[in-house]
């Protein structure tokens, strides 16, 4: 028998990828929505076996031993420009900080692979929609600011 039980920390992820070439985890945080939802889906991370390219979803280490899983949106002079599917900020990540690549997943109980046509299509469409998503996001921000200002004024008048 060779079953092993590990608890997740970025050290463990790196060790597991080094020893076995694979790692699995439940997804956390909203930054890769709508593809993955917190606690709902399982992702399988592998040690990269080919050069990384645009649209790859990669796991990289950041400050204080934290790790993040976001998507490569461009490669420039050996630096990866990375962004979460549901974030609006670019991150510049050096190759040596990338420890793994998303290869398979279980989404809503269904197995999926990053080689599938539907996944590739989703990755590209979602990427091309970025300008539209960005505008919607900004409008939402402005509306929520207006709402807050109005509420604050209302509370002041009531006082």
């Amino acid at each position: 028998m060779s079953e092993e039980i590990k608890t997740a920390t970025s050290d463990v992820i790196e060790q597991e990828l080094e020893r076995h070439g694979t790692y699995a985890s439940v997804t956390r945080g909203p930054s890769m929505r709508p593809l993955f939802r917190t606690g709902r889906d399982m992702v399988i991370i592998s040690r990269p076996s080919r050069p990384l390219r645009k649209y790859d979803v990669v796991v990289y280490t950041g400050a204080s031993n934290k790790y993040t899983m976001h998507r490569i949106i461009a490669v420039r002079d050996g630096v990866y420009i990375i962004r979460g599917d549901n974030t609006y900020r670019r991150e510049y990540v050096r190759a040596d900080r990338i420890i793994g690549i998303l290869t398979e997943y279980n989404r809503r109980g269904k197995r999926g692979t990053t080689d599938s046509v539907s996944y590739k299509l989703y990755s590209r469409i979602w990427h091309y929609l970025y300008p539209v998503r960005f505008i919607c996001y900004k409008i939402k921000c402005v509306l929520s600011r207006i709402k807050h200002t109005l509420l604050r004024k209302k509370t002041k008048t009531e006082e």
Binding site: S2, E3, E4, I5, K6, T7, A8, V12, E16, H20, G21, T22, Y23, A24, S25, V26, G39, R40, D41, M42, I44, S46, T103, E104, N106, G109, R111
Partner: peptide, 27 residues
Amino acid sequence: VLEEVGGEYLAVAVGKRAKDFSGLVRM
């Protein structure tokens, strides 16, 4: 959730269960 990856099997907890088990089972 249990998945096979390259001849190995990996299991993780999802949903509410993920709150009390945050590890990885490799079989």
